[in-house]
Amino acid sequence: MIPTEEMPEHRREFVESLRGFAQRECGTREQRRALTDDDRITHSPELFAKLAGLGWIGCAIPEGYGGGGGRIGDACLLVEEMAYGKVPLFGLGVSLVSSTVVERFGTESQKKDILGGVCRGEVLATAISEPGTGSDAGSMICRAERRGDRYVINGQKTWISCAHIASRILVLCRTGSGGDKHDGITMLDVPADSPGLEIRPIATLGGDEVNDVYLTDVEVGADRVIGTEGGAWHQIMRCLNTDRLMCGSMFLGHARRAFDDALDYVREREQFGRPIGSFQAIRHRIADLATELECCRLLVRDAARKLDLEPDRQVPREASMIKLKVTETAKRIAIEGMQLMGGAGYTLEYDMARHLRQSIVSTVYAGTSEIQREIIGRSYGL
Rank of each mutant, 00 (worst) to 15 (best):
I2W: 03
P3E: 07
E9A: 09
R11S: 01
R11F: 01
E25A: 15
R33L: 05
R40C: 08
H43L: 02
E46D: 12
K50W: 10
L51K: 10
A52G: 13
G64T: 05
G66D: 08
G68C: 11
G68V: 02
G70Q: 09
I72S: 11
G73W: 08
D74W: 03
C76L: 15
L78V: 05
M82I: 06
P88Y: 12
S98H: 14
S99E: 13
V102T: 15
A127I: 15
S129V: 07
T133A: 14
D136Y: 05
A137K: 11
A144C: 04
A144K: 06
Y151L: 09
N154V: 01
K157Y: 06
I169T: 07
R174T: 02
R174Y: 11
G178S: 03
I199Q: 11
L205Q: 09
Y214S: 08
L215I: 09
E219P: 04
T228A: 06
C239M: 01
D243G: 09
S249D: 06
L252S: 00
A255G: 07
F259T: 04
L263C: 15
V266Y: 02
R274F: 01
P275M: 03
R283A: 12
C295N: 04
C296P: 01
L299A: 10
D302M: 15
L307N: 08
P311W: 12
Q314W: 11
A319Q: 10
K323R: 09
I333Y: 14
M338K: 04
L348E: 05
Y350H: 14
R357A: 10
A366V: 05
G377T: 12
